[in-house]
Simulated scan of single mutants.
Amino acid sequence: MRRVLVTGADGSIGRAAVDGLRAAGYDVTGLSLRYDQASTADRPLVGDARSSADVVAALDEVDAVLHLAAIPHPSLGTPEEVFENNVAATFNVLAQAGQRGIRRAVIASSINAFGVPMNVNPVVPAYYPLDEDVHADISDAYSLSKSVDEQSARMAWRRWGTNVIALRFPLVKTREQLFKFAANAERDPSTMAREGWAYLDLRDGVRAIIAALESPATGAHVVGLAADDILIDRPTNELLREYAPTVPVRRPVPGRTALVDTSRARDLLGFTPHYSIHEDGQTVSAMTS
C-alpha cells in the first residue's frame, strides 16, 4: 500500500488524516468539494464523492481508500439531503474502488449509527458500555445514513472482496476544542448522556485511521472508538446514577472509565488511545475556572 485516496480531504478529520498519512510516508490523493486551506496531499483534487467520474479519476494508482466525505450532522441539510448525500457518496466510493480491485477501504461511521444519541424520542441505550452490537433505535437521517453505510461496507466485501473497516467515531476534536465541549457538557451533562460522554482526541482519530488502513483484517467490520475516559471530569458511576439510572451497566466503570467498549479496536486493529483530555493534571474545572 503506497497511495491512499482520502475523500473529504478538507474536513477537520480529513485534513488531519492527510497530514498524518503523509507523515507516515504515504502518497495521498485528496478529494474534496473545495479546499478552504492548502492541503498537504501530493495530489489534491476538487470533486464530488457522489460522482462516478470524479471518483474514478481520483482512484488512479490508488492502493487503499479512506472515505470521510459526508454531511456530518442532521442540522446541515434537509433529511433528504443528508441521507441521500451520505449514502450515495459511500456507496459510490466503495463501488468504484471495488470494481477496480482495491482491497482495502476505511470509512467514517459514527457513534450515532445506533440512533439513540440523536433520537427525538426519550430513549436510552440498551446498556453500557456501548459496543458495536448495541440495539439500534433510529429517528434521524444522519444516524440512518451511517447505519446504511455500514451495510454498504458489508455489501462491498461480499460483492467485490473489498476489506472494509467502518470506524464509529464519537466526538473527535483537537485537545483545545475538546476543552470547550467539555465545559458545555459539564454545565448540562444530560446533553451527552446517551452517547456515554464519549470523545476522541483528533490525534488518536488519525492513529486509528492509519491502524485500520494497515490492518490485515479481512471482511467488513464495524469498530467503535473512544478515549479511555469520559469527557466530563466527574466519576462515571456518579453520572450514570444521575443521568442514566435505568440503563444496565455490564461491567465495573471506576473513576472516569469510558462507556464505549473499544476491545474490538484493540483486538482487530491493535489500536489503543494515547490521549486524554484529563492528562497532565489538566481537568475541565481547572481549564474553565
Results as ranks from 00 to 15, higher is better:
3 R>I: 04
3 R>S: 10
3 R>H: 12
6 V>P: 00
9 A>C: 08
9 A>L: 05
10 D>E: 05
11 G>V: 03
11 G>A: 11
11 G>Q: 04
13 I>M: 09
15 R>S: 00
17 A>G: 09
17 A>Q: 05
20 G>M: 07
25 G>E: 02
26 Y>E: 06
31 L>N: 02
32 S>W: 01
32 S>C: 04
32 S>G: 08
35 Y>M: 05
37 Q>E: 05
41 A>K: 01
41 A>C: 03
44 P>Q: 00
44 P>Y: 02
44 P>L: 01
48 D>G: 01
48 D>M: 00
58 A>C: 12
59 L>R: 04
62 V>F: 00
70 A>H: 09
71 I>K: 13
77 G>D: 07
78 T>M: 08
78 T>S: 07
83 F>I: 07
85 N>P: 10
85 N>H: 15
86 N>K: 07
88 A>Y: 06
88 A>W: 05
91 F>N: 15
91 F>A: 15
92 N>Q: 14
96 Q>M: 15
101 G>H: 09
104 R>D: 11
106 V>T: 09
106 V>N: 08
106 V>H: 10
112 N>W: 10
115 G>C: 10
116 V>T: 12
118 M>R: 14
121 N>E: 13
126 A>C: 12
127 Y>K: 14
127 Y>R: 15
128 Y>F: 15
129 P>N: 07
130 L>N: 03
134 V>A: 15
135 H>E: 11
137 D>S: 15
138 I>C: 02
139 S>A: 15
140 D>N: 14
140 D>H: 10
141 A>I: 01
145 S>L: 06
149 D>Y: 04
152 S>R: 10
155 M>I: 15
156 A>S: 14
157 W>I: 09
162 T>I: 11
162 T>V: 12
164 V>I: 06
164 V>Y: 00
164 V>R: 00
174 T>G: 13
177 Q>W: 05
178 L>C: 03
192 M>H: 04
199 Y>T: 11
205 G>Q: 08
210 I>P: 02
210 I>A: 01
212 A>C: 10
212 A>T: 04
214 E>L: 12
216 P>D: 06
217 A>N: 09
217 A>M: 10
219 G>D: 08
220 A>G: 11
222 V>M: 08
222 V>I: 11
227 A>T: 13
230 I>Q: 02
231 L>W: 08
232 I>G: 05
233 D>Q: 11
235 P>V: 12
235 P>Q: 03
235 P>M: 03
238 E>M: 04
242 E>H: 02
242 E>K: 04
250 R>Q: 05
251 R>K: 14
252 P>I: 01
255 G>F: 04
257 T>R: 10
259 L>H: 08
262 T>F: 09
264 R>L: 12
267 D>M: 14
269 L>R: 01
270 G>S: 06
270 G>W: 04
271 F>K: 01
272 T>M: 13
277 I>G: 00
280 D>Y: 09
281 G>Q: 02
285 S>L: 14
287 M>S: 14
289 S>H: 14
